[in-house]
């Protein structure tokens, strides 16, 4: 059969090209453009080469916020994954409890991020907030606006509250896809509850857990709105995570060049980490 060349197909691709160009390529190129130049008012630019990249990579401020970011994400993953799996394991598999649990679990995910920040801000206020007031009346010296430890504690608690449900829902879906015969077979073998978890549930949940780790890593690594509303990065720079720092640099100090260079580095780090995670976790999958 002879194929007749037909270039009309390109016409169908144009809308997608246009869309992607407007929402990804054009903004990204603007950032790239800024990152190599010094920007003055009234659209005056001066070529700076790789100066901003070098400056950012050597800046202590960047190192500090990057470090904070890694610690935060690490703690988040360390708490949310085991907790999410544990909650999913205890959720009922049939009956009226299923919809109740699913709705309860979805609630935090449906609340807008700035509302979550505002809620927790009020909730944690040392004088009038329920959490802050209770902690203080229990004898703890708790004040998240003044003590960095408290600020971290509150930010982490808020993130756990907001996002553990995602891990729960994914794990729950993974658990429900395991056929009951697996549990029976293990029971017949005389396997303990831990054996069942370790050798059946965990391997069967591998794919959804990979997804959960990736999603939680990316989201927590780019967290902005909630700590912005809750602590604004403070006290001092205690909870000044990467994206908070980036916005401060770009919009607070209007250092567009360094900010652009920083966002490119930031973007590359996220991309690299995701790739490393993904290829590590999918290492054994190629054979099937």
């Amino acid at each position: 059969m002879n194929k007749t060349p037909n270039q009309k197909a390109w016409l169908f691709v144009i809308p997608v090209f246009a869309l992607v160009a407007f929402n990804a390529v054009v903004p990204l190129m603007t950032v790239v453009n800024y990152s190599f130049q010094e920007t003055f008012g009234s659209n005056v630019f001066q070529w700076e080469g790789t100066r901003w990249f070098k400056e950012i990579l050597h800046s202590e401020r960047f190192h500090a916020s990057l470090g904070r970011q890694f610690i935060f994400t690490f703690i988040i993953l360390l708490i949310q994954l085991p907790l999410g799996i544990a909650i999913a394991l205890t959720m009922p598999k049939k009956g009226w409890g299923v919809p109740v649990c699913l709705i309860l679990m979805s609630m935090p995910l449906l609340i807008p991020w700035n509302v979550v920040g505002a809620m927790w801000n009020i909730f944690a206020l040392p004088d009038i907030g329920f959490l802050g007031n209770s902690l203080n009346s229990l004898g703890f010296d708790y004040n998240f606006t003044q003590q960095s430890g408290d600020a971290w504690f509150t930010t982490i608690l808020m993130d756990v509250w907001h996002w553990t449900s995602l891990v729960v829902l994914l794990s729950y879906a993974g658990l429900n896809s395991i056929q009951p015969a697996y549990y029976q077979a293990a029971e017949i073998d005389g396997a303990s509850r831990w054996d069942i978890f370790r050798y059946i549930e965990l391997p069967k949940m591998k794919k959804v857990l990979t997804l959960a780790i990736l999603l939680r890593f990316m989201d927590s690594f780019m967290i902005y709105t909630e700590p912005f509303v809750l602590t604004g990065g403070g006290p001092g720079n205690a909870t000044n995570f990467l994206s908070l720092d980036l916005v401060k640099m770009a919009l607070g100090q209007f250092d567009l060049g360094p900010a652009a260079a920083m966002s490119l580095i930031y973007f590359l780090i996220v991309l690299l980490m995701c790739w490393v995670f993904y290829s590590l976790m999918m290492k054994d999958e190629g054979r099937t």
Partner: peptide
């Protein structure tokens, strides 16, 4: 667990990340 029973199902039920040897050995190991 206290009875001496084995069962085979319509679905192929094996421990997913065990080798064939480990799978066959599993009831004995326990």
């Amino acid at each position: 667990q206290k009875r001496n029973v084995s069962m085979v199902y319509q679905q192929f039920i094996n421990y997913p990340n065990f080798t064939v040897f480990e799978n066959i050995a599993s009831p004995l190991k326990i």
